[in-house]
Design a protein around this nucleic acid. Sequence first.
DNA 1: TAGTAAGTGCAATGGAAGTGCATTTGTTAT
DNA 2: ATAACAAATGCACTTCCATTGCACTTACTA
Lengths: 137, 137
Amino acid sequence: MKTIEQLLESKNIRVTAMRLLIYKFLAKKKVAVTLSDIENAFAKADRTTLYRTIKTFEEKVIVHQIDDGTGITKYALCEEGCNCDIKNDLHLHFHCNNCNETTCLTDHKIPQIKVPDGFVSENVNLVVKGICDKCSG
Amino acid sequence: MKTIEQLLESKNIRVTAMRLLIYKFLAKKKVAVTLSDIENAFAKADRTTLYRTIKTFEEKVIVHQIDDGTGITKYALCEEGCNCDIKNDLHLHFHCNNCNETTCLTDHKIPQIKVPDGFVSENVNLVVKGICDKCSG
DNA sequence: TAGTAAGTGCAATGGAAGTGCATTTGTTAT
DNA sequence: ATAACAAATGCACTTCCATTGCACTTACTA
Ligand SMILES: [Mn+2]
Ligand SMILES: [Mn+2]
Ligand SMILES: [Zn+2]
Ligand SMILES: [Zn+2]
């Protein structure tokens, strides 16, 4: 089990207070977060810093981006050893129409999708919408 | 085979010049279009009119919206007898990473997706990304 | 410890989406 | 046909998220 510091160093980005805080925030959350979620959590920090931090995390494959169709991009921590950099996430995402939260279903892999002749599939984005476990209870 | 006029009337919306033009534009295109594609095609018309026309078409299930992950919503004509109103499209969409065009694969239906216990699936958005037939040739 | 590269904060921009209201156009009833 | 009404259009404005330029500060490294 790596520390966050070790993780950041292994990705060749500097360890800063802000990055540690944001990483911990993401780790604590069990659902994907928007930039404004982060802004609300760190009201004292500048938006741009938070924005660029998350972009750096994305670039270094510490988080992955999720487009759940709400029009607002969300982010969630990557699994260790994921290959978010090659393909998009192989796991699927669930967006709750009730609480509006988006969850990584990390152990639900996306099935093989057939495309017509001439088309080459490189990656697949799959978002299931419905009612999440917390809301359906 | 219905005329466009008959189609619009059957959906209880008025036949106007603009609507006919936009419908024909969509029919001519074999790929999904953005609002600004339409704006470019009808530079003389007001943006709002185009916007509201496409929203009306969407509401009346003449077009369906496609979120291909580019951040810009696209639209494409519905098939006759589709049920875009109930679930999202059952067919899948292909986004070309080369030409940036999005195609309806109308006869490629989305497979059944399993979700964990407690989650209820209502609809599914599936976008395959890669190289389209025109670009892979 | 000086120099350099990276990170942060502030201000401004841009694009897409959406709304209020006045005007025009089409439909319907007299 | 014409008045009355409803729907469609055009213009102006707004909001929200994403993104960038530049100055300043902080962290690494020779
Ligand atoms: Mn995920
Ligand atoms: Mn489609
Ligand atoms: Zn929920
Ligand atoms: Zn292509």
